[in-house]
Structure formats: C-alpha cells, structure tokens
Amino acid sequence: MDCGTCESATPLEVHRPDEVDVELTLTEKATTMLEDAFGDDRSHALLVGVLSGGCSGYMYDLQIVESTDTPCQELNINGFRVLVPSASSHLLNGIEIDYVDRLMGGGFKINNPNASSSCGCGESFS
C-alpha cells in the first residue's frame, strides 16, 4: 500500500466547531456529592469532557484531575474548579450536572439541552 505519508497527500480538512463560552450548573445534590468527594481539598478539578462513541455518538466523561494537557475552559461553580475541554464546549454549554441516588443506574447525571437524543443508560447522547 502506498500510504502517502512520505509524499504530499493532504490531510482532509476536519471541521472544528467554534468554541463557545460554557455555562454550566451543579444541582444541590451534585454539589453535596462533590463536597464529599473533594473534602476540603480544592486543588483538584472536575473535568467534564466528551468522548466519541456510545450508542448515540458521544459519551460524557467525568474525571477528578489535578491538571490536564487538554486545552480547557476553567469555571468556578459553587466553589469547585470545573474544566471543560474547548473542543467539546459546543456540546456542553448549558448542561446541568445532577446526582441521582439509586441502587441501579445511580450516580452523576447530565441534563444536556444540546442533546437531541440519548441512550437508555444516559451516558451517551447526540
């Protein structure tokens, strides 16, 4: 195969949506759960990202991180540092992070006004 990597095959132009200034809310329950998780230590941040895949095309990705190499917008929500990758900002603007307390399928839940549909487990959206 001629893979073109040593010649001048031009990469396809990938459309990257414009970055938007993200607004994000945490419900009272989600804030309480984050307080439990973080304790008094506010050196870490909540990274709210999006990965490709899942039944509907995109999956939420929540992590507690000290720092990240990914270019992010940094927000301060209810006293927490929240990082949102710039490349996913158009998908995450306006979301509400909630916490659902139940035995099965419980945990952090994201209500996303940008999602036209989501899969049954709530982890994936499009």
């Binding site: 001629d2 893979c3 095959a9 396809l12 990914t70 990758p85 490349a87 996913s88």
Partner: peptide, 23 residues
C-alpha cells in the same frame, strides 16, 4: 464516512488523509 468520523474527533489528535488515489 469522512464527515461521520471527523465530527467525532473532538479534541483528539487524529488526522484523516484521503489516499484513495494512490492505491
């Protein structure tokens, strides 16, 4: 297909090159 893939690259460092004409 290219649009389907490109839309989901997001912040990942992935590039797509069309090498159809070379093979």
């Amino acid at each position: 297909l290219a649009a389907h893939l490109a839309e989901r690259i997001l912040g990942q460092s992935i590039t797509i090159t069309d090498i159809s004409d070379l093979n």
